[in-house]
Design a protein around this nucleic acid. Structure first.
Lengths: 216, 216
DNA sequence: CGAGCCATTGAGTTGATTCAAATCCCGTGG
DNA sequence: CCACGGGATTTGAATCAACTCAATGGCTCG
């Protein structure tokens, strides 16, 4: 998104931005914290998640290089309602609130893009909520695998490798289920020839069948 | 929100807006439809819901007089991803897309309010998703009752009447569960003295206890 | 090369669903 | 105004998907 800014605006950002390296597991911002800027992922990956009072984690989404994170709370003038954690070694730029807001207000096209992005994100969340509320864990896992393939799929031969290393627990926390259930279902999918995996490297073998399961 | 507009802008809206009466059950806009304007509820109530392929309904939220609906898809330049249905006799104003967008772009304060509103809504959805994914039906029903009390509560004597007439099925479709489960849990809550009800008129008796259940 | 986390498998339990049947309630038409 | 019909609500019973607890084996990283 930043590519569409005027040269002059890019210079402002470049001047003030601060790029930091995060190791796997490092927290970028924390639920309850006050937003003072936004983050743009340059390299690596980040999970945005919420903790319940029982200590269970729900992963809301996964961010990739090029994505903004932390803008919702900043623009909405709230505290962060989720935590951002690096899921691999990452390089992330920090843009101070003042710079970001100033550019947003001076550049109507950018403002437009932002509101559109938030609206799209809201649509996605509404869809996800419906899926979680109404579908079985099996269907949700199939849906999640397809989503991961869409976002992280590397085109290979006949099969498609999902190029992100999530633990079984993290997959469970996206789907909204128990770790053991994910493990059992992944095995089932493997036996049925829908996917293949060795450890954290998961490949989609039969996308069509997986889609049928997801819609079910 | 419209109250903050300049007189001049209000006049534009008043001139072009179109207020329509909807009976209970009437559809205002339909999932998959193309947004051509936004709606502002003047009187009554509306549910925004999605249908799954199995024909199950998920209610995403309930709107009251003063609320805008349909702006997410319009601003996000998507088709409606949910259906809006009148849950009682309602009076709803329609503001054409062109008027709405023009005002949004000419009035930065209003634009700001809109993006902030969408961000807040996104935060609410993220919270709801987490609750549905991680909490038991009992906890979710308690949460829903508190939300309804917050939005529709009428201050009464010791107890608080929830002034909205939802069917058991509709409550189930907010919570994301089966109708029978809602009925059983409502009875349990009644026996435990947390709530009281006669048909669709539900009163919150012991809010503290209900909150404890909701957080659980 | 050991420690500790991660993945896997088994077994038992349970929360929630589905199906079925009975009763209630509300709006409508006679 | 009242009887009727059909949807809404309630209750019961059986089933099952998913969770929890527990134990084992495997991998990774210092």
């Amino acid at each position: 998104m930043l590519n569409d800014l005027h040269i002059q605006e890019q210079e402002v950002i470049d001047e003030h931005k601060e790029c930091v390296r995060y190791r796997k597991g490092d927290v970028i911002f924390h639920e309850g914290g006050i937003p003072k800027g936004i983050y743009c992922i340059r390299k690596g990956g980040v999970k945005i998640s919420k903790m319940t009072s029982q200590g269970k984690e729900q992963i809301l989404f996964l961010s990739q290089p090029g994505d903004f994170i932390g803008y919702r709370a900043l623009i909405g003038e709230e505290v962060y309602n989720a935590t951002a954690t690096s899921i691999e070694d990452s390089s992330i730029c920090y843009i101070p609130k003042s710079d970001f807001l100033e550019i947003m207000h001076r550049n109507p096209a950018f403002f437009n893009k932002m509101i559109k992005k938030v609206c799209n994100q809201l649509g996605i969340m509404e869809q996800n909520l419906t899926i979680i509320a109404q579908k079985s864990v099996k269907e949700r896992l199939a849906t999640t695998l397809l989503m991961l393939k869409e976002s992280y799929g590397m085109d290979g031969d006949e099969s498609t490798l999902i190029d992100i290393r999530l633990s079984r627990e993290e997959i469970a926390n996206v789907v909204g289920t128990a770790t053991e259930t994910v493990i059992r279902l992944l095995s089932t999918f493997k036996n049925e020839g829908l996917i293949d995996f060795d450890g954290k490297r998961i490949k989609v073998i039969n996308e069509e069948q997986l889609k049928k399961l997801a819609v079910a």
